[in-house]
Amino acid sequence: MTGLTFRKREEPAERLDLSPLTPSRLAGMAERDIAALAVGTSRMGLRVGDVFDVVMGDAATVRFEGGSHRFDRIGEAMETGEITVEGDAGVRLGRMLAGGRVGVSGSVGAHAGSAMTGGVIAIAGDAGERLGGPLAGEMMGMKGGTITVGGNVGARAGDRMRRGVIFVNGTADEDLASRMIAGTIVVGGRAAATPGRLMKRGTLFLCGGAERFAPTFVDNGPADLLILKIMASEFTRGEVGEVPFDGRPMRRLGGDTAVLGLGEVFLPL
């Protein structure tokens, strides 16, 4: 049985809050009730039926046919099921995700995976600023689960990250892993300056190197660690897939000693 499909009619003139369209919230709802769900963010009061053609199906899988950079909050607080977006998505994709899977074929806006605790987010294109990061006033960013990005990520990916894994195939913009508390980030391409600013703990693999580090990252020399081989093999077997390091020795930096200094950064030798 095919999933429940939202087919975009035309590009919306305003940002849409699509957080009500998760599998658990749509389960058992009639088509008329789904079409009446409010998704607008202006005083026009837009509803699902104003923006999408709804094709009913098993709500355990929700599909957006045609995306938009204004499709915000897709998969917010989802606990189970699957959402796929054919196209782009807006801000806060998979925010507070607890389980299930969110897949996007295009690129997404800021705060994807913000404060998520579990599940998987797979973005084929680029991700905007603060991937996995907290919203204003929140103390922690990503707290679990896995995010994979096929393209590049914007500034401050992994901000205040506490647990979980972020894999970026492309490059990372400035201040990757700022204020990181723990967790693991793997970047295939180059990281702009200055990765790890104010990070307390956590692990970065910067396989394409970095523009520069703050002087509060101390070079520990080459590290030939068994854990690198174990991690590479575990990533390959899991959601992340093949990673651009294979367990061979890497150069290790420790930092940011301005705060606690227990974070580690691995670079190619």
């Binding site: 002087p215 509060t216 000693t257 301005a258």
Partner: peptide, 12 residues
């Protein structure tokens, strides 16, 4: 950052 590291007895 270097000042903070030095104050806490950490290297930079």
């Amino acid at each position: 950052g270097m000042v903070r590291a030095g104050m806490a007895g950490r290297r930079s």
